[in-house]
């Protein structure tokens, strides 16, 4: 009985007693969630445009951050390092199209997925050879102390990260909706054949979309790196995008955004209010349980297209 009370009712009582604290936790969770949205968006873009489930998205986050830190440590100024990493991520996009996507065109989804496993291992290895396996602290000049707004504490680093991520997400969404290139990308995502028939060069689109995914990864890598240090476990943080995608649907941009926010908020609530009862570390697995529940009851996600079996 006590246990049931502690799990099912207790946490809500705590929440009701301390609404300010609840809001604080919620805000912290949502801010973290914006970052998940950003990484999930990287997945969605590639999945929509090339039908590839890009396992390497997490590794790209790590690799971009490592390269950035590596250049800073080598003594390059911040701006130059940034430009250089952006160039590296664009070169990576060209290389992926040339050496992976093009030879594997028309192969099944599972084969393309496997090839991204390869890309992932390659990037981890390359990162290790170039920059070593240590944790690299990354200071991008954002004060890390908390900010107090109406008595509610907000982590400044989280806030800035969320602002950057939110701006990127909004810009990408607008870009997709409003521009010629965006229309071409949506067309490719919708129907490859039809897109080619109106003259959209598929290969250029692939390079473009992988480059964007690379930049998204870079932004996420820098922001996470600034708070956690640039280290190989970043790859695992980035994999949180997976449950986000299951929630939001693999093909939906709004889904990636909303899914990220939900995962961020709920796992933080779980950690803070249920952690004391069922043991801490809730944050690490909660998103996956949530995703599992979604898989059982709504496999297409919140916004994904209904999955209809073709016969």
């Amino acid at each position: 009985m006590h246990i049931l009370y502690a799990i099912l009712i207790g946490p809500f009582v705590t929440m009701a007693r301390e609404p300010a604290f609840l809001i604080e936790v919620l805000i912290g969770g949502l801010l973290a969630g914006v970052m998940y949205s950003l990484v999930a968006l990287g997945f969605v873009l590639i999945y929509k445009a090339s039908g590839v489930f890009n396992y390497a998205q997490g590794t790209m986050v790590l690799f971009a951050a490592l390269t950035f830190v590596g250049m800073l440590e080598a003594g390059l100024p911040v701006l130059l390092s940034l430009v250089a990493v952006i160039a590296v991520m664009i070169v990576l996009a060209f290389a992926v199209e040339r050496m992976v996507l093009r030879p594997l065109v028309n192969q099944s989804e599972i084969i393309l997925f496997m090839s991204t496993l390869g890309i992932s291992y390659f990037l981890v290895g390359l990162g290790q050879i170039l920059w070593g396996g240590d944790v690299h602290p990354l200071d991008i000049g954002i004060p890390s102390g908390p900010l107090t707004v109406h008595g509610i504490l907000i982590n400044q680093l989280d806030l800035y990260a969320a602002i950057v991520a939110g701006t990127l997400v909004a810009a990408l969404a607008l870009f997709f909706q409003k521009t010629r290139v965006g229309r071409a990308l949506r067309a490719v995502a919708d129907d490859h054949q039809a897109a080619m028939s109106v003259g959209i060069p598929l290969k250029q689109i692939w390079v473009f979309i992988w480059a964007i995914a690379g930049l998204v990864a870079l932004a996420a890598g820098i922001m996470w790196g600034a708070s956690l240090g640039v280290q190989f476990s970043l790859e695992l943080v980035a994999l949180k995008a997976l449950p986000v995608l299951i929630l939001g649907g693999f093909t939906s941009i709004p889904g990636a955004i909303v899914g990220g926010l939900i995962v961020g908020a709920t796992e933080k609530l779980g950690e803070v209010f249920w952690g004391p009862v069922i043991g801490s570390g809730v944050e690490d697995w909660f998103a996956y349980i949530l995703a599992l529940i979604f898989l059982l009851f709504r496999p297409q996600g919140l916004f994904g297209e209904r999955i209809i079996q073709r016969v």
Partner: peptide
């Protein structure tokens, strides 16, 4: 061209 099995951008 057009296609035998209609290839439109269904979401648009």
């Amino acid at each position: 061209r057009t296609f035998q099995n209609i290839a439109l951008f269904k979401g648009m």
